[in-house]
Design a protein around this nucleic acid. Structure first.
Length: 439
DNA sequence: TCTGGGGTCCTAGGACCC
DNA sequence: TCTGGGGTCCTAGGACCC
């Protein structure tokens, strides 16, 4: 029996998204095993179907599959987030036309509100797929269900079972066949069941999606908390998670902003670490200003390579409060350097550092400092800082990133990460388009 | 040689208050 | 000597997601 709820969600997800983006501009990649790597060319983060068929697992370190380049003509790319981000924006804007409400959930997927739809949802979803393929060259799959969790699961089925032609709708399926389908899917595939929960559920003989759907809610609540209890309700068609409308782009304000990266090679000296964390801070502060916010705390961390056998491990972090909220790159960088001094230990080989902005609030809720001897002066400084930062942002936007930067970020940046095979920015830079043609 | 980066939410426990 | 109960707020840490 279907629940009385009228809510319907569709989850549209790009297939092998990063690989698909590369293929749009390079048709020679079609029908070949292709992978896209994480930053620093570290791990495999996207695989074409052919690469999956070679047994390349998601997240596997690249060096473990490098031999397939020779033996199976595996093709690989460094990640090009400028390209994927731009393609994503186009995809989301196109998908947004298909529903009054859209939640952009990640770079390659979004929920659409299918509630109260009078048309045949499957035909409608097929129309969506056709349009994204024709306009953007991107293949997608669509899952439809009365809760977000069911829509995610439906999308999984649409992807794994070609017989559904890329669209699966729980509504087209009676209870009995829905249950038997769920009995064929591992519980770990459910949205919200990660590695840890999977292990614990297995131990309780909850092995398939169907097992979880019919697990006793009170028991789940007691053992695992409200989050999984909600998941169980959602599997039963009771929507607990609302669609968070992100269609009007301005309303997403991040609660924390992180900028962190591994280094191309390990570094030892504090001066180089300082350059790295200052440049991350500048990047984070830019993001902060982009959403018209300020922060009250900043946190910095450093760590050695945890996989290294020969060097001793060390990692540490520190969170420092700002006396006055700020989004000024200079002030934040100063504080980050103070923090770095406190956690830095000599004689270690550092592999990664990061900066986190916390206590984020809108710019216009600026709190003056009561104890500031000259309150008015601090207001004026604040205003000048805003103007300077806006100017820097504009210049960098117009003339390219790092046109203007803090000297502390370092001019040479020997620690910068590796990206040996990045594709051109086909959609965002005229000069790189020309380069693509020449190739 | 080579192992990503950027987020969210929830909970437990301590500090502090009356 | 004896030392309550209930509330809020904050932070750290753990789980999850892509």
């Amino acid at each position: 029996m279907r629940p009385p709820s009228k809510s319907q969600f569709a989850l549209v997800d790009g297939n092998n998204f990063y690989v698909a983006c590369e293929r749009v501009f390079n048709p020679l990649l079609e029908n070949k095993p292709v992978v896209v790597l994480s930053n620093n060319d570290g791990c495999v983060v996207a695989r074409s179907q052919e690469a999956k068929d070679l047994g390349i697992r998601m997240g596997i370190p690249f060096f473990e599959v490098k031999h397939l380049i020779q033996s199976h003509n595996l093709l690989w790319f460094s990640s090009n987030y400028t390209l994927y981000g731009d393609m994503s924006a186009r995809l989301m804007s196109l998908l947004g036309e298909f529903s009054p409400h859209q939640e952009v959930y990640s770079i390659d997927e979004c929920f659409l509100d299918f509630g109260g739809m009078t048309r045949d949802p499957i035909a409608y979803a097929q129309a969506i797929r056709k349009k994204t393929k024709r306009y953007l060259g991107l293949p997608t799959c669509v899952g439809i269900g009365s809760s977000k969790t069911l829509a995610k699961l439906a999308n999984h089925i649409a992807k794994k079972r070609p017989s559904y032609s890329g669209v699966f709708d729980w509504g087209a399926c009676d209870n009995l066949s829905a249950d038997s389908l769920m009995a064929q899917i591992q519980v770990g595939e459910v949205w919200g069941v990660g590695r840890r929960l999977n292990q614990q559920l297995q131990a309780m003989q909850i092995r398939t999606v169907r097992d979880l759907k019919y697990a006793e809610a009170s028991l789940i609540r007691k053992q695992f908390g409200v989050v999984l209890e909600r998941t169980v309700a959602e599997l039963n068609g009771v929507p607990c998670l609302a669609l968070e409308d992100t269609q009007s782009a301005g309303n997403i304000r991040k609660q924390q902003i992180i900028s962190s990266k591994s280094f191309g090679k390990p570094i030892q000296h504090i001066q180089e670490l300082r350059e790295a964390v200052v440049s991350y801070t500048v990047r984070a502060a830019e993001k902060l200003r982009q959403q018209n916010s300020m922060c009250t705390h900043i946190s910095v961390y450093i760590r050695t390579n945890p996989f290294s056998q020969k060097n001793p491990p060390y990692s540490n972090s520190i969170t420092l409060p700002l006396i006055l909220s700020s989004n000024d790159s200079r002030r934040l960088s100063q504080l980050v350097c103070v923090g770095l001094e406190q956690i830095y230990r000599p004689n270690y080989f550092y592999k990664k550092a990061g900066v986190m902005l916390l206590g984020i609030h809108p710019e216009n809720q600026f709190q003056g400092n009561l104890f500031e001897p000259n309150h008015l002066q601090s207001r004026q400084q604040q205003a000048r800082s805003q103007i300077l930062m806006k100017t820097i942002d504009q210049l960098n936007q117009t003339y390219g990133q790092s046109t203007l930067m803090l000297a502390g970020a370092g001019l040479y940046a020997h620690w910068r990460m590796q990206a040996k095979q990045r594709s051109p920015n086909y959609t965002t830079a005229w000069n790189q388009l020309a380069q693509a043609q020449a190739n």
